[in-house]
Nucleic acid binder design. Structure first.
Lengths: 216, 216
DNA sequence: CGGCAGTTTGATGTTACTCAATTTAAGTGG
DNA sequence: CCACTTAAATTGAGTAACATCAAACTGCCG
């Protein structure tokens, strides 16, 4: 499937492979079931849904520690594709092993349940955003949604977050054109809310950003 | 919470209550965890997400046999609210019982997994539709998505489906205004694709509808 | 230096929203 | 059975938001 630096561990083997993929590489394809459960260990990736007319909807950005498809643990279905956004490392765990642990360990179980619950809530929120909110609000929401997730994985200083998305990714995630994303971003910049350049997001006025993009 | 015709069964009790609600009645509220797992037994309902500015996003229409929130079985979280669309009957099963059976019975388990997988896929598709498609395409998609689900529960003759949605529901589901929904529907009518009136959907040209609303 | 991918900017077009008035349909009570 | 009320659907005119098309600009890399 993709470059795989297979390493075998002797006793009590759980993880099967350790793979590296360059930015832009497709990691999994919709509906192609693969037994191993994949986890993103380093880099960014995204789940997306490809439409026949060429457009795509990005469903979720994946950060280190995220499971590529939690639902695949249960149903082995992959209702979307996944692509590397930066260079990534992915490791795969045998589905049977994971499921066995899930049955035996109550902590693993509740962690998994929590994860599925969060997924479901995120989907619901994003649906509401795409269906009901304006361009500015959608983009602000995307930032607000990502910021705490980035902060949980990086040391953040001075409100500067590593942010490897191209404007095309933002556009595909919130259902706009790149041109319009560009306009909204320069609007945010002019209003002193945030700056996005060189793969870095600098939030200058978090309050105002929240005022625009918060759902509550 | 809502009118409940509580009936107790003696030995091996699984279901706890049997409730009726009139159209428009809110059945569950977001984030209010309730142990019993709720199943829609009769009538239509819908999951939705309420926004602070008054608009709402309908996430999914529920038909008889649907679980109000499959994910609640695992995580007891309810990331959305549910409201009755017609008069409905809902029954609740003790969460502990359901979970016990889930553990012991492999068939129940795989059925549940399948259900969660389908939920997840539906969400992904709807996200793609809201993010990427035009008004006509969204509305056509909604019909195409509902038709087989209705057909699985009713005897359908002559391409006429029971369809209790108001235009407001369609609008809230696909992210449009009622005014625009009305225009698109009369367009469909004029083109001889379908007619919607008196709670009945009549599909006159399924092929053409599919041409507009199909994602593949 | 040349080429390429990504971003920005302007001009123009289209889609869908807003506002408001009118029609239709569905009760409700006399 | 008929006035009256109310919710839902339709229609038109004007507008705002976002898309499209095309050109120029930026930074980066070979």
């Amino acid at each position: 499937m993709f470059e795989s630096v297979s390493e075998q561990t002797p006793a009590e083997q759980v993880w099967q492979q350790f793979a590296v993929a360059r930015a832009g590489k497709q990691i999994v394809t919709r509906y192609q079931p693969s037994d191993p459960i994949l986890i993103l260990c380093a880099g960014w990736a995204f789940r997306y849904f490809q439409l026949s007319d060429g457009s795509r909807q990005i469903l979720k950005f994946l950060l280190p520690g995220d499971i590529l498809s939690p639902v695949a643990i249960l149903s082995e279905s992959f209702p979307f594709s996944v692509k590397a956004l930066t260079e990534v490392q992915v490791s795969g765990f045998a589905g049977s092993e994971i499921r066995a642990r899930l049955m035996s360990n109550i902590d693993v179980q509740s962690a998994f349940a929590k994860s599925l619950g969060k997924e479901s809530q995120d989907d619901a929120e994003l649906l509401a955003v795409l269906g009901q909110r304006s361009a500015e609000e959608r983009i602000a929401y995307l930032f607000l949604h990502l910021i705490p997730r980035i902060a949980a994985r990086t040391v953040v200083r001075d409100q500067r977050y590593p942010f490897p998305l191209r404007q095309q990714h933002i556009a595909d995630a919130v259902g706009l054109t790149t041109v319009h994303v560009s306009r909204v971003l320069s609007l945010f910049r002019d209003r002193g809310i945030l700056t996005l350049s060189d793969g870095t997001l600098h939030v200058a006025d978090y309050q105002r950003l929240e005022g625009i993009g918060c759902l509550k």
